[in-house]
Structure formats: C-alpha cells, structure tokens
C-alpha cells in the first residue's frame, strides 16, 4: 500500500499487488519492494493481504513479518489491511477491509477506515465487467516481464468507469 499521512490521518492512494502464492519467497518480495519504493514520491505505508481460506480471518504470518520489516526500514508504524473474504460481494455494499496498526507493545490494533462510496460502486462495476482478469501482480511480472505490475492499463480502464 502506498500513501501519505497528514494530521494524524493516513490516506492510501495506491496499491501494488505483489504475490498470489500463499507462501511467497523473500527474494522476489525484496526486489518488488525495492522497485516500488524507488519509483515515486509516495512511500510504502503497509501491506494488504487476503487469506487463502474463505473463513480465515486470522493474521497472516507472512504479512505480519513483511509489515514489521517495512516498519524497521522506514522507521514509521506500518498498517496491515486484510481483505475479509466473506464481505466481498458482487454489489460491494460495504468495504471489505479491516485495517490494523501496530502498537508499541507489538500487538495489532483495529483502526477506523473511511472508504469513498464512489470507490465501492466503481469496484462493483469493475467486478461486473470482469476487469479483475486484467490484474497483474509482481509474480506474474516475473513469469512474463512484459506484464505491468503497476497495472497502468487497468487503472486507465477504471478511470474510464468513473
């Protein structure tokens, strides 16, 4: 997740999908993070993930490790966003993410999220148009370097939907 924080509030402006395997290997993630963090003015503020199992809402150990590593490098607290599988519906009636922030004690605390309602309708129409088939992550990029894991063409399509 990329974003900016101002006045005690954090705005997530963009995300870069990294992996779809449930147990990713560290070298590819390291490369991906190095590439993303060197790209633009935005900084990496956290990790988003979704569990493989539909009913699993636990913290994913890989994501936790990754978030802690990012915190160690950036020196700021990182955020962890989980896509809760059973809240994902075709009409996107509610935001399906839970966001957590790591406390000094090391535990993760649930924090409040505001989602732009326009975003929800956009996601819903993107689902109907099956735009998710266009999504490319860094793993796909490693398989075929022609694929753009920043998903600029998908972003363009989403902008047209607005």
């Amino acid at each position: 997740m990329l974003g900016k924080s101002h006045g005690g509030k954090l705005t997530i402006t963009s995300v870069v999908p990294l992996v779809h395997e449930s147990a990713p290997l560290s070298p590819s993630i390291e490369i991906a993070l190095a590439l993303v963090s060197s790209k633009d003015d935005q900084s990496i503020v956290g990790i988003y993930y979704s569990n493989a199992s539909y009913q699993d809402k636990s913290f994913n150990p890989y994501s936790i490790r990754l978030a802690e590593k990012i915190a160690a490098v950036t020196g700021q607290s990182t955020y962890l966003a989980q896509v809760v599988n059973w809240h994902l519906t075709a009409d996107c009636s509610s935001p399906c993410i839970s966001v957590y922030q790591q406390q000094d004690s090391g535990s993760w605390k649930d924090i409040k999220v505001d989602v732009d309602p326009v975003a929800l309708t956009l996601v819903s129409s993107a689902l109907q148009k099956k735009l998710y088939r266009e999504l490319v992550d860094f793993e796909n990029h490693l398989d075929n370097p022609e694929l753009d894991f920043y998903n600029s063409s998908l972003n363009r399509m989403l902008r047209e939907e607005l």
């Binding site: 088939r133 266009e134 490319v136 796909n140 398989d143 075929n144 022609e146 694929l147």
Partner: peptide, 8 residues
C-alpha cells in the same frame, strides 16, 4: 501466449 490474454 500471455498470461493475460483477455478475450471475450
């Protein structure tokens, strides 16, 4: 064949 050969 690309991974994302999107087609109708």
């Amino acid at each position: 064949m690309g991974y994302l050969e999107t087609k109708d």
